[in-house]
């Protein structure tokens, strides 16, 4: 595709192909919304079916969940700063904030894995009941998305180091940032409708 450059348009929007990729990714996020809402719907249907196994409020630990939430919220913020740096054409800023974002992401994953180990010790494995199946699948799908995102963005960092901020790398980073923010949105709903709801009701 030919590159139309214009001073006012951010780099990632500057070619038609870039615009198409970004639009396509938004549509993919629409599909992700459907995917996660299906997981949520199944969770809501099955959450009371504990079949004698542990119930949500018996095993959830508010402190750990809050730490996970703050880690992910902060990573979403630093991810925004990374894109801000990218739009100021600061390769080092983009690099720096992206690495910070990934570190927060890794911290989140560490906490989540510990959380899962804790549940398994409490006798709640994915095979225990309808509730645990839906719970672990919802959480696990989100966690798998975070893991995938970390690997993906790490690969982008290599490309950034090699090529600098170009129309293509800018587009890739921008799309990855959409993905990362989206995972934060999903987590907000998990936090509210799985953890808080489970502990309150």
């Amino acid at each position: 595709m030919t590159a139309h450059t214009s001073a006012n348009v951010p780099l990632e929007y500057q070619t038609n192909q870039n615009q198409m990729n970004i639009l396509g990714f938004w549509i993919f996020l629409g599909a992700e919304i459907v995917l996660f809402s299906t997981l949520f719907a199944s969770y809501f249907v099955l959450e009371h079916n504990t079949a004698g196994g542990p119930v949500g409020h018996e095993i959830f630990i508010l402190k750990d969940v809050l730490i996970e939430t703050f880690l992910l919220l902060t990573s979403s913020f630093t991810c925004g700063l990374a894109i801000h740096a990218m739009r100021n054409n600061s390769k080092n800023g983009l690099m720096f904030w992206t690495i910070i974002t990934l570190l927060f992401g890794l911290g989140f994953l560490y906490m989540e894995i510990n959380e899962f180990i804790h549940y398994i010790h409490e006798g709640a494995t994915i095979q225990t009941s309808g509730f645990t199946a839906a719970f672990f699948t919802l959480l696990g799908t989100h966690g798998a998305h975070v893991s995938f995102g970390i690997v993906w963005i790490a690969l982008l960092l290599i490309q950034l180091a090699k090529r600098g901020i170009t129309q293509v790398t800018a587009r890739k980073f921008f799309i990855a940032s959409l993905y990362w923010h989206f995972l934060d949105v999903v987590w907000i709903f998990i936090f509210t409708f799985v953890y808080l709801k489970g502990m309150v009701m």
Partner: peptide
């Protein structure tokens, strides 16, 4: 897992 198994709460 027991998404669809009645006995275990699916």
């Amino acid at each position: 897992t027991h998404f669809f198994t009645v006995a275990a709460g699916g």
